[in-house]
Design a protein around this nucleic acid. Structure first.
Lengths: 125, 125
DNA sequence: CGCCTATGTTGACACATGTCGAATCAAGGG
DNA sequence: CCCTTGATTCGACATGTGTCAACATAGGCG
């Protein structure tokens, strides 16, 4: 059960560059299904600890970091692990064990999808 | 008490275009304070109903919509009102009463701030 | 004024979530 | 083989959140 299932945010367009999980916010009202998918992503970043962990991984040299490097966010280690798991379930991070340590890495395409939803929204205003 | 306080996401740079509430995710690890602020925005969009409501307002003609136009999201009217209030508290929406109806409108600068955080993250990957 | 429609607020409740301590698993090093 | 260190899982608990029914408020209209 070590393999946490990633959300199907990027079924078709993984190879075409950017995941079109949902339309830009200003294009048209989201359907229930689209909102369900997109909300999961936003929710994953809707916690201060998770946001710090994610930012720590994203800004770390080489785009990856081991848990020992980023677990200094003021909560216990089990809690860190819990949040990293949530980020993984949301498809925002991937993990890999190399020897003693476990390394986390950002999933760029999902980030791009979220950015697209918001970017065009701000551009349209 | 009709006036819900907006978060101070955009104290200084309201007029300069974009709100620099937080650094891009890849620039450096977020501080606890920054994460606290940013997480509130993401959390506001982390609910399917709120995302649909927000998208409905954002995509509506003229960038504004009355509650009667967007309250068709499958939940009761009090729940719609509750979520609109949350979006207002997060600084994502503003409301104005004109006669019988209440009109909601997106706050572009906050959206831009969120987009900036994510956009540069995806660009760096 | 009095009714009717449109929103917002309150109170209550079920459920999800964040947190920790303790136990457990994984990998190396004596 | 056991012991140490890193990381996840488990069990429990407090708090937060989404939801609705019931009530309250605001504004038009006869």
């Amino acid at each position: 059960m070590s393999n946490v299932k990633a959300l199907p945010l990027i079924e078709t367009a993984e190879q075409s560059g950017v995941a079109p999980c949902c339309p830009p916010l200003t294009e048209r009202p989201m359907t229930a299904g689209e909102a369900e998918v997109a909300a999961r992503m936003f929710k994953a970043l809707g916690d201060p600890v998770r946001l710090r962990l994610f930012s720590a991984v994203a800004s770390h040299e080489g785009g990856e970091a081991c848990v020992c490097d980023i677990s200094d966010v003021g909560v216990s280690q089990p809690t860190v692990s819990h949040h990293l798991k949530k980020l993984k379930e949301a498809g925002l991070l991937t993990s890999e064990r190399r020897g003693t340590w476990v390394y986390y890495r950002v999933e760029p395409s999902v980030l791009a999808a979220m950015g697209r939803i918001l970017a065009s929204a701000s551009a349209a205003a």
